[in-house]
Design a protein around this nucleic acid. Structure first.
Length: 814
RNA sequence: GGGCGAGUGGCGGAAUGGUAUACGCGCGGGACUCAAAAUCCCGUGUCCGCAAGGGCAUGAGGGUUCGAGUCCCUCCUCGCCCACCA
């Protein structure tokens, strides 16, 4: 059998490596530290996915190469261990999440080991470990003290399926990201992180990092900065009934601020719309219209976010019976409410300009409100306002003194006019909202706050951390945190007055845990601080971060917020946490569909390792295609890489101490190509290059020992077990990974003869073998001497000749 | 509706503006074998041709260039993301 026994050699080397386990700081004193990181997994009960294998293998290859090049490499692994699946499993079966999670983590570690990943296990962490979440809670307190964490009552997203509130980022298409239940809005008092304070810097920072453009765009859109003017519609008149605070209001002057990015269309306003939830609605609605307004508002409130957005095109509303004054003309404009205006963006009110906004156009037509043109399309552009709104820039018309200006000029001058009239100001708005971090669930880090009857909410003293998650709870979700009914948890005194107090029962969003884990790895066992400043300085920020694109606006944005905040508070000396980011593409099932249990197209890495070996699996996943592309799994493809590995294995029997220039040359070319491809993370073409080399060595009479050893060194980063096995079989006593990365001799990269393509008028008519340093005339003479070339040139005039040295000659004839 | 990608053999895919289809899978033929598996060798875009060779091919159509899968314009299809943000 010309085949190596992976069942024997893989476990053998895994055991040997475990003894001299991989450490970030060790044999290589050279320094130049590199921090390579993959997104840590949630320890799911179903174990490692082939998608994990892809990203971890990719970074493992880079880590091994960089170590061999003399770098100190930090390549850690841990577990994002808090989360809903384990808790939901507990609800169903009664098995405690801690138990489920411990079991899953043990299984993951077994699988990691069976794949030969060179993680530094001395730094392992789990976010569910009190020694870890002590510092998550510490960060919460730090943010609280610095006004970056606060409690507020606000309309929040509520999921009835998960029985908890959700962050904005966890609502997808109006549905819960996790269970797809339609999300409803509730007014609740919750804990928030003030991420909006960093909106501008998070936006600017994106420009400084080496991330996929796609992810950068998504973050820019999510932050959603837009510049405009907040302008006031004052002098709201009419008969007022309503209450503001406890006071009954009869006649008063109110002002409605609206936000617009199109202040150039100010003279086209024909009405103002408030969101149904707008606080002024109660105070402004007249008696005659009250019934209709209240009915409309109740109906809007009952709709889920999903229903409200699905009825996108249908714009309905109610006139509240009152008028406001236009800020510049003083003209009276009617005030409406409609749920096409969002209460939590801008001021919760907009000015209606039907001629130049699609939504206002629909609304105005429905209720026969005036459509007044104030922007004329540029010359040569036809537009019919009877059919649709004109929403592009143009020239101002019907705008009093501003007529004739371009939209850009108009924006500027009207903004200035509004400002000098004291009726408004230029403002910047963001789509980004503060991050809602409290959850009414069990399996997370408790929020380190207490409630005292006399002192109100008080932070736990940092010295009293961690606030340990109690075990005596009932998991069944009730809409309140399961911690509420714990007997042991609430036995606490107020940190301020010493009187009786209760603990905060909500836990933190698990994205809080994962927002800073990369900082903990640099000093993961420290009991005094989350990490020593020297350790942070040595390793951070992360040089290379690899993970899935699904975290674009969640984990990756939150983690950036954390590092900016910690930077400002003096704990880290950098702002951007991840200098270079790459996303691995999805590995699809053999049917080309996303792998899922329900579809039954899930590939289990354990089975592939059993049948083909870990090295073959690693190599195959790297060979499938570009790291960032989605690629379908094809089991028959693995046999190709396994054949390649067997071929390399069998070659060791033909190794000799003699020289063989052709073989050496093939290896040196491969060293160059593979070195460049690993640095560029083009693993598929690196493997292709190694296959080409193996095919060359395969037909070579003999294989010089030094060339073969170099080849084994580079292959070992991809196939560590086989690499180590061959290395020892060749008589070497130490590990192949203690070797230096091979270098190539540039003089060996050039062949004595190269094939030069001969074209006539750009069409290939033959190839000739020439010395690559030949001059143009020699090449042309040889080309012309070729029968087939002569045939096409003959009888024509040679207009010009293009010669690309060593590659191609093109004879242009007429 | 907006934004960003991508369309290359039977399949996964390769190609600093310079020999399109590398590498691998699959398939066909051969060697070895009593036979099979494994392995090895040869072939494999398409059409015409015995061959030499030639025509046509990188979603479609134009353009720039000595030369275009690659650059530019128009269009088609697919994927992903965002989506009443005023």
């Amino acid at each position: 059998m010309p085949s190596y026994n992976h069942l024997e050699i893989e476990p053998k080397w895994q055991e040997a490596w475990a003894e001299g386990a991989e450490k970030a700081e060790g044999t290589k004193a050279a320094g130049d530290p590199l921090y390579l990181l993959t997104m840590f997994p949630y320890p799911s009960g179903s174990g490692l996915h082939v998608g994990h294998v892809e990203s971890y293998t990719a970074v493992d290859i880079v880590a091994r190469k960089k170590r061999m090049e003399g770098h100190d490499v930090l390549f850690p692994m841990g577990f994002d261990a808090f989360g809903l699946p384990a808790e939901n499993y507990a609800i169903k079966t009664g098995v405690h999440p801690a138990e489920t999670t411990d079991k899953a983590m043990a299984n993951f570690k077994r699988q990691f080991r069976s794949l030969g990943f060179s993680f530094d296990w001395s730094r392992e962490l789990s976010t569910a470990d009190p020694a870890y979440y002590k510092w998550t809670q510490w960060m919460f307190l730090l943010f609280y003290k610095n006004d970056l964490a606060y409690r507020a009552k606000a309309p929040v997203n509520w999921c009835d399926g998960c029985v908890t509130v959700l962050a904005n980022e966890q609502v997808v298409d109006g549905k819960c990201d996790r269970c797809s239940t339609a999300v409803v809005q509730k007014d609740l008092e919750q804990w928030f992180f003030r991420i909006t304070k960093y909106a501008d810097r998070l936006l600017a920072g994106i420009e400084t990092v080496d991330w996929p453009e796609r992810i950068k765009t998504m973050q820019r859109n999510w932050i959603g900065r837009s510049e405009g003017v907040e302008v006031e519609f004052r002098g709201v008149k009419g008969e007022m009934v309503g209450e503001i605070g406890a006071e009954r209001v009869h006649e008063a002057e109110f002002s409605i601020p609206v936000f617009t990015t199109r202040i150039d269309t100010l003279f086209g306003v024909s009405y103002v719309v408030l969101a149904p939830e707008h606080p002024l609605v109660d105070a402004l609605t007249t008696i005659e219209n009250r019934e209709a307004v209240v009915a409309y508002r109740d109906q809007a409130r009952k709709k889920s976010e999903l229903e409200r957005t699905q009825l996108e095109k249908d714009k309905a509303g109610v006139f509240i019976g009152t008028y406001a004054k236009h800020p510049l003309t003083g003209e009276e404009v009617p005030i409406w409410i409609s749920d096409y205006v969002l209460v939590n963006y801008g001021t919760g009110a907009v000015m209606g300009v039907p001629a130049h906004d699609d939504r206002d156009f629909i609304f105005a037509n429905k209720y026969s409100l005036p459509i007044r043109q104030v922007i004329a399309p540029p010359v040569g552009v036809e537009h019919d306002l009877a059919v649709a709104a004109y929403t592009l820039d143009g020239l101002l018309v019907n705008s009093s003194a501003f007529d004739g200006l371009t939209s850009a000029e108009g924006k500027n001058m009207i903004a200035t006019a509004v400002e000098s009239a004291g009726k408004g100001k230029r403002v910047t708005n963001y789509h980004l909202r503060d991050w809602l971090v409290s959850r009414q669930r069990y399996w997370g880090a408790p929020i380190p706050m207490t409630w005292c009857e006399t002192c109100g909410v008080q932070p736990v003293e940092p010295s009293a951390l961690p606030v340990v998650l109690p075990r005596d709870v009932d998991f069944l979700p009730t809409g309140k945190s399961p911690l509420v009914n714990s007997v042991t948890f609430h036995n606490v005194v107020c940190p301020k007055c010493g009187g009786p107090a209760r603990r905060e029962c909500d836990t933190m969003d698990t994205f809080v845990d994962s927002s800073w884990y990369y900082l903990r790895y640099v000093d993961s066992t420290n009991k005094e601080v989350f990490a020593e400043p020297e350790a942070l300085k040595k390793w951070c920020p992360v040089d290379l971060y690899v993970g899935g694109a699904e975290h674009a606006v969640m984990h990756l944005l939150y983690a950036r917020f954390f590092s900016y905040a910690l930077h400002d508070l003096g704990y880290v000396d950098f702002e951007e946490p991840f200098l270079k980011l790459r996303n691995q593409g999805l590995i699809l099932g053999p049917d080309g569909e996303k792998m899922s249990k329900s579809r039954g197209n899930v590939v289990n890495p354990d089975e592939v390792i059993e049948q083909y070996g870990a090295d073959a699996l690693r190599l195959y996943e790297m060979f499938m295609g570009p790291l960032e592309d989605a690629k379908p799994w094809d089991t028959s493809g693995i046999v190709g890489v396994r054949r390649f590995l067997d071929k390399v294995w069998m070659m060791r029997e033909r190794v000799v101490e003699a020289k063989n220039v052709d073989a050496t040359r093939a290896v040196h070319k491969t060293i160059k190509k593979v070195s460049e491809d690993i640095d560029g993370m083009k693993f598929n073409t690196a493997i292709s290059a190694m296959m080409i080399c193996a095919n060359a060595l395969h037909v070579a009479e003999t294989i010089p020992r030094d060339a073969y050893e170099s080849f084994v060194k580079i292959l070992a980063t991809f196939a560590p077990h086989l690499g180590e096995e061959i290395w020892h079989d060749l008589g070497n006593a130490s590990s192949v990974f203690d070797e230096s990365w091979p270098t190539y001799d540039a003089t060996l990269l050039v062949d004595d003869l190269v094939a030069i393509a001969v074209q006539v008028n750009g069409k290939l008519r033959g190839t000739i073998e020439m010395d690559p340093t030949s001059n143009e005339k020699d090449v042309q003479d040889r080309a012309m001497a070729t029968e087939n070339v002569a045939k096409f040139v003959e009888g024509n005039e040679i207009v010009k000749v293009i010669y690309v040295p060593g590659r191609l000659i093109n004879i242009v004839v007429k």
